[in-house]
Amino acid sequence: MAPAIHLRTAVALAGRFPALSGVDLSADSGEVVAVLGPNGAGKTSLLRTCAGLLAVTSGEAVVLGHDLRVDCSEVRRHVGLLGHAAPLYDELTAAENVRFAVRAAGCSSARAEPALERLGLVGRLRRTTVGRLSAGQRRRVALAVLVARAPALWLLDEPHAGLDAGARRLLGELVAEAAAGGATVLLSSHEPEVVEPLADQVMVMAGGRVAEWRRGGRRALRSIGTGVGTGVTDVA
């Protein structure tokens, strides 16, 4: 089966400036990839490229079976991106934001309620306009949008930022559930200790390129479970 994400020496531009300078990445359905690196390494650009938001100018870039150099619109329908700024409307309530996103994706608005409950957005919280919520609560609403939409590709750009310990645990569960359901997850972070245990693959970026690859904790655990591997994470 073809990988969900296939990048080969992919070069992408953000406006007129190079954002990715020849990145290779292959991730299958159900895989979680942690993307690490310092500020300006290209983590956000990689996620935005996979979402079809940055133009790929050379190399190969096929996401969910669609060539990004030919058509991004079909990919975008199946992608959920949680960026630094949550895609929410301040004047709408948490419930209205989730319902709008779900209906925009062509799904039934009935999918909003279970997602709101899963993220603990019940009672007064679900009726509060998003502009009045704290940063962490807004993050929960944005996650509820992802859970309700259930995209085939989750792109989470530093999703742990602004979340308390309970919400971080919940995020870990959601990532694991999405991957178990067949979704591919790209997870960028500054905190290796937080994301590596969740990931099958860990890629470290620098200067718009992949500087290092290693196996993540999730693959090691799965290897133990199936008796295939040693269970030892080979850290470069």
Partner: peptide, 10 residues
């Protein structure tokens, strides 16, 4: 966020 959200909304 909202501009990207609209482009990715479907």
């Amino acid at each position: 966020g909202t501009r990207d959200g609209l482009r990715l909304s479907g």
